[in-house]
Design a protein around this nucleic acid. Structure first.
Length: 415
RNA sequence: GGCGCCAUCGUCUAACGGUUAGGACACUACCCUUUCAAGGUGGUAAUCGGGGUUCGAUUCCCCGUGGCGCUGCCA
């Protein structure tokens, strides 16, 4: 069997959004699932729209997700190849000059068809195709020309790209015929849509994976989420690592219709992957996302993370839920009498560790014949806020003196 | 306008002629629980419409409708 060689060919006209990167993901999965080669090809043939920084953004986006490429090419460095093949066409009488550009001569009446790995048999008539430009007057090739020449040159076996290219594929087929080359397999995948069913816009997820990473989303979650937007594995399993996706991937299970970007689902994936992180790993990740966490010592930070990790959606959520461990919440204090009792109970605790705190307070509740829920509620309101992680463990995060001074503060404020 | 692609719960999807149309997110009820989460168990919710083919259509064919794409010396 021929070797599978696949390419992701973005044009560097801006930061690639999540939909572009999903195409890259599918290309990567297709290549690696067949033990093939994954090529990155920068299609920088439009000099007007070229944004130099976007090349790095493309590379960084792939790297952060682990989509490592085997080879990289830039079309702007391959001009002589296109020139050579243009001459070939022109010698055959299939290209002609027009206002400084070169056009391919389309033979009318021809039937162009291919078997798309997603769509099945697709047919066009050459009648609807105009003589199209292959080399622009500035000497750079058009997409149609450059991609066909390069795909052949690099022995690309499968062209997996967005389905906006379906209508252009007949042009590409014409070129393959003109050169007497065998066309690759075509796989056209639908674009991701926004919640309004329109093309993904900036506010609805057309952001780059780099931005999602900055917001505290995990690469594993992004990969899993993106893979499932237009593809599904056999069973009901939902959580897949990149390696698992690679061994499971098959183009047959790629979808025909356009999926809609759904942030809720991404959030769910992110929570799931966050839950899988080891405490040590999570700690170092959280440090990158929070100033407060950065200056906190390991042991205490680990305690806090352990208490709030279940409610974090992204890494950036550390600040959102850890506030009560740095500063008391705004909640109104409990009644004075109850707060005094709480203070008394806390003062009796001899060793300030989680276990002793719990034993000692439970003992106090029993001896004073208190309602346990009510007492814990009082503690929560006096020391923290109305929502907290388990109260005894939370108390252990603070110093005893801090707890007492917070309660005293509450007593002062209480009626 | 022409050409093309697409159509299952609100969303992501399963089904490859026969299922009580399955799973997940979201929503919701209950359980667990001092609170908020997390977790557990249930629930609401879908085959765009009309014709065929067939003993039988979500599934195959045609028409319509709707959405999207292309129709650039942009990709």
């Amino acid at each position: 069997m021929e070797k599978v060689i696949v390419r992701y060919a973005p044009s560097p006209t801006g930061i690639p959004h999540i939909g572009n990167i999903r195409t890259a993901l599918y290309n990567f999965l297709l290549a690696k699932s067949q033990k093939g080669k994954f090529i990155l090809r920068i299609e920088d043939t439009d000099r007007k729209r070229f944004v130099p920084e976007s090349v790095k953004a493309i590379e960084d986006s792939l790297k952060v997700l682990g989509l490592n490429w085997d080879e990289v090419y830039r079309q702007s460095e391959r001009l002589s190849i296109y020139q050579r093949d243009l001459e070939l066409l022109s010698k055959k009488g299939l290209a002609y000059e027009d206002s400084g550009a070169w056009r391919f001569k389309v033979e009318k009446g021809k039937k162009l068809e291919w078997t798309d790995l997603v769509h099945g048999q697709v047919e066009f008539t050459a009648d609807v195709i105009e003589d199209f430009v292959v080399v622009k007057s500035d000497g750079y090739p058009t997409y149609h020309f450059a991609s066909v020449v390069d795909d052949h040159e690099l022995k690309i076996s499968h062209v997996l790209r967005g389905d906006e290219w379906i209508s252009s594929t007949p042009k590409h087929l014409l070129l393959y015929q003109a050169f007497c080359w065998n066309p690759p397999q075509f796989i056209h995948v639908p674009a991701i849509l926004g919640p309004d069913k329109k093309k993904l816009s900036k506010r609805e997820g057309a952001r780059s994976v780099l931005e999602y990473i900055e917001d505290g989303y995990l690469p594993e979650a992004l990969v899993n989420f993106l893979a499932f937007l237009g593809w599904s594995p056999k069973g009901d399993k939902e959580l897949f690592t990149l390696d698992e996706l690679t061994s499971e991937f098959s183009t047959e299970r790629l979808n025909k219709n356009s999926p809609i970007f759904n942030l809720e689902k991404l959030n769910w994936f992110n929570k799931k992957y966050l839950a899988k992180y080891t405490p040590k790993n999570l700690l170092s990740q959280v440090r990158k996302f929070s100033k407060k966490a950065k200056s906190e010592e390991d042991e205490r930070l680990a305690m806090i993370i352990n208490l709030i990790r279940d409610r974090m959606t992204t890494l950036a959520d550390f600040d959102k839920y850890s506030g009560i461990f740095f500063e008391k919440g705004e909640e109104p204090p409990p009644p004075k009498e109850k707060a005094r009792q709480a203070k008394e109970a806390v003062e009796k605790i001899e060793n300030w560790d989680e276990k002793t705190i719990e034993e000692s307070l439970e003992k106090y509740i029993k001896e004073s014949n208190l309602n346990p829920s009510d007492f814990k509620n009082t503690l929560r309101l006096a020391v923290f806020a109305d929502n907290t992680p388990p109260i005894y463990q939370s108390l252990a995060v603070l110093d005893k003196s801090e707890v007492i001074s917070r309660i005293e503060e509450a007593i002062k404020k209480a009626k």
